[in-house]
Design a protein around this nucleic acid. Structure first.
Lengths: 150, 150
DNA sequence: CTTGAAAAAAAGTGCCC
DNA sequence: GGGCACTTTTTTTCAAG
């Protein structure tokens, strides 16, 4: 991981649809050397995957909600079970167990409020090990990037 | 946006490095028709961009932190100013103003604790309009996807 | 062991139907 | 939407630093 690798990763985190030849010019390498590096970064797992990022509003998923969850039983296996359960929901884009006052935090992409209602009923209803949950909605998005600083 | 578009988007949200010919076969279209659709989805802005997603741990950013923020002055222009300020930080990957008990939520990607210390001092120190903030750390990641359900 | 030039293979592109 | 000729890009090969 030298300066050129970092530059490559930075560029590809912004736009991975650029051609290899293009990237090569940008980092001052020949196309073949550049490709070798990209492949190495990929097989080393530093580049996890290349994906298309959609515009949520245009894809009909304009509502972003954040739910913080307090579990009834906090043990590790219960937390894990909870995360597995919520991960199975397509509307859940991020699910974390966290330190602090609450046990978990979920990030949701919803079509409308009805979807949220159905989802909370399904996930946090009877016999779900959820003691309490707090829902907030995203009003304004100041930043939303997949890029990691290098 | 018909069934084929949705299928294409679904595939590209998982792996956008697949070739057009490959995607065409998958959705049962000729390469030229498929490419036309992809271009249309792109120029319509439904596909916002194509990016490389890195493995945070392997890229040296293993610490994920979530900060909820309560502002001193809650007016819209103050919230906006706050979001603009935090968005400028490379370690901040997501920044939202939210409904509910707190005003904003930040998602951070950090190298270590020292970086967090420096960042909170810089963002929430003297004269920052931040009344209170609560930091939690991600213990386990149950799910983390950029894919939006269709 | 890494680089770069050039050939070969594959993919993308645009025009026509 | 599909077919086909044309262009561009990717990928392999191989010689050189």
């Amino acid at each position: 991981m030298d300066r050129i690798d970092r530059k490559l990763l930075k560029l590809m985190q912004e736009d991975a649809s650029r051609t290899n030849a293009d990237l090569a010019t940008e980092v001052g390498l020949s196309p073949s050397s550049c490709l070798r590096r990209i492949r190495r970064l990929r097989s080393a797992g530093i580049i996890d995957r290349v994906v298309a990022v959609l515009n949520p509003a245009k894809a009909g998923r304009g509502v972003k909600a954040i739910i913080t969850v307090e579990l009834e039983r906090h043990g590790e296996q219960y937390v894990r079970r909870f995360l597995d359960m919520v991960a199975a929901e397509a509307a859940v884009t991020q699910a974390y167990s966290v330190s602090g006052a609450t046990d978990a935090l979920l990030m949701l992409r919803l079509k409308d409020m009805d979807e949220l209602d159905a989802l909370t009923e399904r996930l946090f209803g009877e016999g779900s090990n959820v003691a309490r949950y707090y829902t907030s909605f995203v009003i304004r998005t100041g930043k939303e990037t997949t890029a990691i600083p290098l």
